[in-house]
Computed example of a mutant assay.
Amino acid sequence: MRSSDDRVYLAPVDHLRAVAAVLVVLYHGCQLLSARIEGRRFVPATDWLYSANPAATLVFEGHTGVALFMVLSGFIFTVGAYGRPVRYGRFLTNRLLRIYPLYLVVALLGLATQVTLPTFQDLLRILTFATPAQPYGGVFWTLCVEMQFYLVFPLLCRLLAERGPGALLRLLAAVFLLRALVWLSSPAPEPHTASLYLGLAGRIDQFLLGMLAAWVYVHHRDRLRARWLPPVALALALGLLWSFNQVHGFVSDSPLKLAWSGAEGAVWALVVAAYVAGARENGGGRLSRGAARLGEISFSVYLTHFMVLTVIGEWGWFPAALPPVWAAFAVTLLVALPLTVAVSFLTYHAIELPFLRLRRPYTGAPPTAEPPRPRQRESYRGR
C-alpha cells in the first residue's frame, strides 16, 4: 500500500485538502468581510449568512472544511499505519514537526501585535494552542483538537486492526451517549453546544469515521469505485449543509446539534473513501496537478489566511456596486485567496518543508503470518 499505490493515493488526498482549505478561506472571507463592509464586528448570533441556494450555503457553512480536514486525518493515518506497529515517540515527533514550526511563527507574530511585553502565561498558552484571542488565532483551536487525536491514534489504530470496525462503531455510540448525558445534565436552561464544536469531545466522531472509511477503503476498495458513488456522496454533503444552514444550525443549541458532528463526518467520510478509491480513473492533467499542489500547502493556507483577511479588512476597499455579501465573496475569491496562496507557497517552502524533511518513518514492518501448527496425532486418529 505504501509503495506502488502512493502516487495514486496521495494526489486525490491533496485534492480534498485543497477543497477543505478553499472552503475555510471563502467562509471566513464572506462572514467576516461582509460584516466589515457594513461597518460592524462580526457576531455569529446576529450576522450569520443564510441562503436557499445550496452553492451559497456551501460557502456560508464553509467551516465544514475543518470537518473534512479531521476526517482526512483519520483516513490518512489509518491507511498508512493499518496492520503495522506504530512507534509512538516517532509518530508524535512527526506530528510536532508537521504542526509546530509554522504555528509558532504565526502565533508569535500575533503576540507581537500586542503593545505589552509577553508574559510567561502568554508563552504557555502558545505552546498549548490556547491562543484564540490573537488576531490570527481563530483557527488555533483545531490544532489543539488534532493534537489530542494524535495522542490516542496509535491505540485506536491497533484497536481497529485487532478488533475490527465494530470496536470503533461501539466507541462512536458510547461517545454520542455520554455527550447527550452531559448535555442533559447541564444546569443551564439552554445548554450550549459550543464546547462540543471546539473540542475533541464533539469532534472525535469525525476522526473515527475517517478511520472507518480507511478500513472500508483497504478491505473493499473495488466496491467503492462505482462511478455514481462520488457524485452521490457529494450531493449528500451539500444537502446536509443546506439543511444545517436553513435551520440556523451553527448558532443553535438544539439537541439535534449533538448529532451534527457525526452526520457531517459521515458524509465527508463517504466522499473521501469514494473519491480516493476512484482516483485510478481520474486524469492527471494540469487541473489535477494544480489542485494537488494547493493541497500540499493547505496547512499554510489554513494558518495564514487570517493574516491576509485582516489586512484586507483594514485596507477597506470593496466594490461599492455589489451587495455586501457579494462584495465580500468577490474580494475573497479574487484577492484574498490568491494572496493567501502566494504567501503560503513561500511559508511552506521556507518554514514547513525544512522540518517536514526531518520526519522519519513511524511504522514498523507488518507482523508475519504465524506458521501453521503441526497437527496433533489425536487428529489423525480421529480421521
Rank of each mutant, 00 (worst) to 15 (best):
D205F: 12
G89R: 14
L209I: 12
F120D: 03
S288Q: 09
R373E: 15
E352R: 09
C144Y: 04
S288N: 09
A235D: 01
G62W: 12
V139S: 12
A292H: 07
W183H: 13
W268D: 00
L337R: 06
A292R: 07
A350C: 07
L240P: 03
T119I: 10
V43W: 10
R381V: 08
R95K: 15
G239C: 05
P231Q: 02
C144H: 10
A330R: 09
A180V: 06
R179D: 01
P367V: 14
L196E: 02
R40K: 15
A263R: 03
T363C: 12
T119W: 15
F129E: 02
G364T: 09
S344Q: 00
P367N: 12
P132L: 01
Y103V: 10
A330W: 14
P189W: 07
V311W: 15
A45L: 07
L108G: 14
W141F: 13
Q121I: 02
Y380T: 02
G262V: 05
V22K: 04
G316L: 08
E370G: 10
M1V: 00
A214K: 12
A336Y: 08
V343G: 02
G39F: 11
R36V: 09
V335Q: 04
P338L: 07
C157Y: 04
Q31T: 06
A269S: 05
S4D: 11
S195W: 15
G29I: 01
G239E: 10
Q246T: 07
V308T: 10
T46V: 05
P319H: 05
D6A: 14
T131A: 13
V301N: 07
E146C: 00
E281R: 11
P372W: 15
L124R: 12
R286T: 07
L322H: 07
V182N: 02
G65V: 05
R360M: 04
S344N: 06
H192P: 00
R40E: 11
R17Q: 06
S186W: 04
I297V: 11
R223P: 04
L334H: 00
L117E: 05
R377Q: 06
C157V: 05
T304Y: 15
P372I: 11
D122L: 08
F250L: 15
R17S: 08
R95L: 13
F355T: 01
R7Q: 07
Y302L: 11
E190F: 01
V175M: 08
L49K: 10
G39S: 09
W326N: 00
T304F: 14
V301K: 04
R90A: 10
